[in-house]
């Protein structure tokens, strides 16, 4: 067990309410976002997260620290969320990719055609992104990004949430979801590219480009 995990687990086992409340507050946000990828409503996602914490409370004494505490908690969450998703007829196959995971992630119209001397080159370069100084605009952009994440196909959304919102490693994600490393990368790539395209509308220094 890492020393951070060791201290935290010892505090929780000793009944430290402040430590528990802090943990629930810090971790429940990304957990809710992740759970929402598996189930059909916000309320259902909230129940998944609550059930996860109840399972954590009950399982604390059995936690051996072979995995990081976070991985252990997320494993419980994914199991509960998957079971619930099946009940809601939202079972997701992780061993194969779907039609939504194929094809180019960047509009082919942005590249020169096969007859061109520079076939496959940018017709015009993607605009550089500017730094946003305006706090209100920054908040709007981050809200938009969340909306885009929520509209991604479920598997892409789940992988992207684990990787970029929660901060899991690719190994952790592969283990949690039982997905191959190659498929994990495909899902991550498509999800990031989709989010990038929306960000480009807000951040392109010359906003004329890539409005599709």
């Amino acid at each position: 067990m890492s020393s951070d995990d060791g201290e935290l687990v010892a505090a929780l086992r000793a009944g430290d309410e402040a430590a528990f409340t802090r943990l629930v507050t810090d971790w429940s946000r990304p957990m809710l976002l992740l759970a929402r990828g598996f189930v059909s409503t916000e309320a259902s996602a909230e129940e998944v997260v609550q059930d996860t914490w109840l399972a954590v409370i009950r399982g604390l004494d059995a936690f051996e620290g072979r995995a990081a505490l976070r991985t252990w908690v997320y494993r419980i969450l994914v199991n509960i969320a998957k079971t619930r998703g099946v009940k809601e007829h939202r079972s997701l196959p992780w061993s194969s990719l779907g039609a939504e995971d194929e094809g180019p992630t960047v509009d082919p119209g942005l590249f020169r055609g096969p007859e061109d001397q520079y076939a496959g080159g940018w017709k015009s370069f993607p605009s550089d992104w500017r730094t946003v100084e305006d706090r209100v605009l920054e908040i709007e952009i981050q809200d938009q990004l969340r909306t885009v994440l929520e509209r991604l196909p479920e598997r892409q959304r789940i992988v992207l949430t684990l990787r970029d919102v929660v901060g899991c490693s690719s190994d952790e994600v592969c283990e949690l979801l039982d997905v191959s490393a190659a498929n994990q990368r495909v899902l991550l790539h498509r999800a990031r590219a989709g989010c990038r395209q929306v960000l480009a509308r807000y951040l392109a220094a010359e906003p004329s480009e890539e409005v599709s």
Binding site: T25, V49, Q142, R192, R196, L199
Partner: peptide
Amino acid sequence: QMEETATRLGSIPVDSLSTEATSTLLDAF
């Protein structure tokens, strides 16, 4: 830009559990 997208996703606003849910959990704990 793909790297910036990944970084920005780390700070998107997300809802947390309701206060009722949190206090129910604290009771259980």
